[in-house]
Design a protein around this nucleic acid. Structure first.
Lengths: 140, 140
DNA sequence: AAATTTCATTTGCTTGTACAAACAACTTAA
DNA sequence: TTAAGTTGTTTGTACAAGCAAATGAAATTT
């Protein structure tokens, strides 16, 4: 299977794109002091204080164990706190957590601008949509 | 930034798709006894015995350190061997390595079929192409 | 009410991947 | 021909993410 064939493989191209855009996202979020995924999680917490971990898992499409670790980190960083109630954990933003929201939104917009400028606005949107759709179709 | 907004973010959708298709690829490659990425590496080695690690890094779009670890594993599994020559490492397939080539190709085809069936043949191709293009445009 | 099942979270362990620093071998120029 | 720089590989360390099993609480069944 000669060299160039790899780029006809969705597994391959998607993983590569994932690495590239992840690096870009880290760059955009650097000023906030947290990584992109932690940033998204924090925004979800700010958006709905008291959100449960399973809701976070649902939104972020990540497994519960990963969510636990990520919440741990937000707590250690003083951005959020866990209120345990029976078997549920409810996550609330701290003052510091509320305060970085603006930075997070800025970072997110910045990321959006960066890749949109490189891909073209419409192309970026189209790719995002296609990617989202495909992910949905493939998970079964 | 309310819930559904995440799906308008390329970083997000791409990472999700990457997780989904990686799982699918693992599934397809399970019969071969190695993971998809090791499988691709092995195919490259079979395709060009004596290939250097930097060539592998180039083809696979991965960093040299990652390549080292992956080659290590192929060696440990008895599928390949390193012939060190000066500062270069040349990777050759062993007998066992040559022998699993057919299985690897089958796994690869199987992966292709699986996602093409779910996405539609043309859509799958188009997405692959778009993804490849985008990765190229973004890495700068 | 006790036993069982279900559910949300946690913990231990594993894998993939990267970066930074180190190292080793080659190249070039004074 | 030695010093300086470059290039290919390796090693140490770290982090994201997952799985499987464990825990602890709630809900359901007997």
């Amino acid at each position: 299977m000669p060299e160039k064939y790899l780029e006809n493989c969705l597994y391959f191209t998607v993983n590569k794109l994932s690495r590239v855009i992840s690096k870009m996202a880290e760059e955009s979020f650097r000023p906030t002091g947290i990584t992109p995924t932690h940033g998204f999680m924090m925004m979800l917490v700010n958006n709905k204080p008291g959100i449960s971990q399973s809701e976070l898992a649902e939104e972020l499409h990540m497994t519960p164990s990963t969510i636990t670790r990520f919440v741990d980190k937000l707590v250690v960083k003083g951005l959020a706190e866990r209120k345990v109630q029976g078997k549920m954990s409810h996550i609330h933003p701290t003052k510091a957590g509320t305060e970085i929201q603006t930075d997070l939104e800025k970072a997110w917009k910045d990321l959006y601008r960066t890749y949109s400028d490189l891909l073209g606005d419409e192309e970026g949107k189209a790719l995002t949509k296609a990617t989202h759709l495909a992910a949905g179709q493939l998970e079964s």
